[in-house]
Computed example of a mutant assay.
Amino acid sequence: MSRAKWWTISDWLRENPGDPDVPAMRDFLTRARRSHLEYGRDYLGWGVFVLRPS
């Protein structure tokens, strides 16, 4: 999953805090990021860091 998709989901979560899908989307985002950091990054061999306000 690309970082652009992570940002889109993060933006959606901030803009729709009362939506009933928030818990599932937050869980999906957390699992996608963790999977990338634990497994995907080993195969890429590099990283890009972008700071965004929370």
Rank of each mutant, 00 (worst) to 15 (best):
A4M: 02
P17I: 01
S2N: 04
R33T: 05
E15P: 00
R52M: 08
L13Y: 05
S10C: 12
L37M: 13
S54A: 15
L13W: 08
M1H: 03
P20E: 07
R14Y: 09
P53W: 14
A24F: 12
H36L: 07
T8A: 13
P53A: 15
L37C: 03
N16P: 04
I9E: 06
R34D: 02
F28R: 11
V48C: 11
P20Q: 07
S35H: 14
V22L: 03
P53Y: 15
F49L: 15
L51G: 10
K5W: 03
G47V: 14
P17S: 00
P20M: 07
G45S: 01
R3D: 07
T8L: 11
R26K: 13
R31W: 01
V22T: 02
L51W: 11
E38V: 01
R14Q: 12
G18Y: 05
L44N: 03
W7N: 14
T30M: 06
R26P: 01
P20S: 00
Y43D: 06
W46M: 11
V48W: 05
F49E: 15
K5I: 06
D19Y: 03
W6A: 03
L29Y: 02
T8G: 09
S54F: 14
R26M: 10
A4F: 07
G45I: 05
A4E: 03
W7K: 13
D19T: 02
D21V: 12
S35D: 13
R26L: 09
E38L: 05
D42H: 09
A4Y: 03
S54D: 15
I9A: 02
D27S: 10
E15M: 03
G45V: 01
M25F: 12
R52I: 08
N16F: 00
W46Q: 08
W46N: 10
V22E: 04
D11P: 02
V48E: 13
F49R: 14
S54G: 15
F49N: 15
G47Y: 14
V50E: 08
G40N: 01
W46C: 11
D27W: 08
R41C: 02
A24V: 10
N16R: 05
S10M: 10
A24D: 13
K5D: 06
I9L: 03
D42W: 06
P53R: 15
H36N: 08
A24T: 12
S2E: 00
D21H: 13
T8I: 10
D27Q: 11
Y39L: 11
R26S: 12
A32C: 07
V48L: 12
V48Y: 11
M25I: 12
M1F: 08
L51D: 07
L51K: 11
F28N: 11
A4Q: 06
D42V: 03
E38T: 05
R33L: 04
W6Y: 04
T8D: 12
R52H: 12
K5V: 02
W12N: 03
F28Q: 10
D42L: 09
I9N: 06
V48G: 09
T30Y: 09
M1A: 01
A32S: 02
S54T: 15
W7T: 13
V22H: 03
